[in-house]
């Protein structure tokens, strides 16, 4: 895997202090959200634990001795939730799924693949989808199981797929 290319803001010291000016703060949060999602995508990070977030490389830059304080991290995470790039695993809001693509976007991508490989009206297991040889070149290959399920649920909601339970395994039928 290639080294993650940090954006310029990451070496800009005041980036780690939430700005008071509303316009500037919006720009700053845009940059933070873009940074966290692209960093997660590159490193294959699928979940963020709030209590451990301050240890993540993305929230601190040792070379300039700056770290985003906990309340700042909280604001960034809430903003990610607002944009659909983070979903809390439960109501305690202590862990969240990091979706560098929203569930809907993943769903669209999976459906495209299903269309392209003529799998409409056939059944796939979720394991096949995420770890099968046939999806090896797809972006959703090795996608976190929970996120995959969320993505398929969005397809189900729009009538493009049907989820099935085989007891110990789950499958999906594309429509």
């Amino acid at each position: 895997m290639t080294e993650f290319e940090w954006p310029w803001q990451y070496s800009f010291p005041p980036f780690f202090t939430l700005q008071v000016n509303a316009d500037v703060r919006k720009t700053q949060l845009d940059a933070w959200c873009a940074l966290v999602t692209s960093w997660g995508k590159q490193g294959g990070v699928t979940q963020i634990d709030v209590t451990e977030a301050s240890d993540l490389a993305v929230f601190k830059n040792a070379s300039i001795h700056r770290a985003l304080p906990p309340d700042g991290i909280q604001v960034v995470l809430e903003e990610l939730v607002r944009r659909g790039n983070l979903e809390w695993t439960d109501k305690t809001k202590r862990r969240g799924y990091l979706l560098w693509r929203s569930a809907g976007e993943w769903g669209t991508q999976i459906y495209k693949w299903a269309q392209g490989s003529s799998r409409i009206n056939t059944v796939c297991t979720l394991y096949e989808l995420a770890h099968g040889d046939e999806t090896a070149d797809q972006e959703f290959h090795n996608l976190d199981g929970d996120i995959l399920l969320k993505a398929l649920r969005t397809l189900e909601a729009s009538g493009k797929a049907e989820l099935m339970d085989f007891g110990d395994n789950q499958g999906v039928k594309f429509l």
């Binding site: 005041p14 202090t17 770290a67």
Partner: peptide, 26 residues
Amino acid sequence: LRVGVAWRDDQDRPPSFWFPAFFQQC
């Protein structure tokens, strides 16, 4: 600060002020 030209860094003691326009990497 109000017009968004300057950014404040509270993790510096005393607080320092930075200007993206004059920041090389930006």
